[in-house]
Structures are given as C-alpha cells and as structure tokens.
Amino acid sequence: MSAETVDKRELSPEARKEFEWLCGRYPRRRAVLLPLLRIIEREFGCIDEAGMALAAELIGISAAEVKSVVSFYTHYKRDTDGKYVIWVCNTLPCALRGARELTDALERKLGVRCGQRTADGRFSLKKAECLASCDTAPCMQIDDDHYDHVTEQQLDEILARYE
C-alpha cells in the first residue's frame, strides 16, 4: 500500500501522554511497541494499516516491522474483525466440559463458523487457545469481558449487550 492511501492518524492528547509516560518506563523505545498497539487499538477501535503506520512513526521503525509484530499475536483487534470479537475456548480442559456445545450454539445463533465474521460486521467468532479459565468452562470472552459457565440459554441476553 502506498503512503498516499493511508489516512494519517494522530493520538489524542491523553493517549499521547500515556505513550510518553510509557517511553519513560523502558530503556528502549522499541519496547513500548506492544503497549502502544493497545493504545492505538483502544483509540481507533482496531489496528489497521493507518494504525500500524502511526505506531511505526511513533516508535521510529518501519511499518513492515510493526506488521511483523502485529501478525505474530492473535489478540489485537484488526480491521478485518467484527466490531466485537468473541473468543470461545475450545482447548482440552474446556472441551471436556461443554466447549463444543457452546461453540455450536454460538455458530447457530450468529450464523457463522468459528473464524468468521457476521454479515453485519457486529461479531467475529474465534476459537481461543486456552483462556486460563479451565475451572469455569465452558467460557468465553467478548473483547475484555469474561463470561464463565456459559449456557446456551444465556447467549441471547449476553449478545444483546453488544450493540
């Protein structure tokens, strides 16, 4: 993508302050990249090309470097994701305690398979690789909200909270 097609972004003054504070917490600016990506995710709703360009500029590295880092991690919200991301854990301890049934119910309700986004762009449904919550399976997270012991009956009510 050429530079012209990327709309230029700026951090809000408050986010800018947080970034400057973070720069003082690490001996090298590069180490601020992961926390900065969280700031950008929060400020702009997701991490897209323009967000990565902004991170590159603020850290002083190439956009390709930033992309290489972003693509390594699964938990950043990307522009290809729905407005809300549902993470449903399916790893063994959860699979033993109803994760498959919960995943099936979510797939039915949303009309998508795991890994897909709903047609209206509201939700992405993703399989999580262990949420460290094996004692409360079946469990899921919607963005930063964690839900334990989720039953199919609760799903309508929970999903309705995410407009």
């Binding site: 690490y26 992961l34 926390p35 991690y73 699964t74 938990h75």
Partner: peptide, 12 residues
C-alpha cells in the same frame, strides 16, 4: 524499585 505491568497479546 520500579514496576511496570506489560500486557501480552495472545501467544503461548
């Protein structure tokens, strides 16, 4: 002593 919480982003 200074302490900073560093949040990961999903990678075992």
């Amino acid at each position: 002593v200074d302490m900073t919480i560093h949040r990961g982003a999903g990678a075992y």
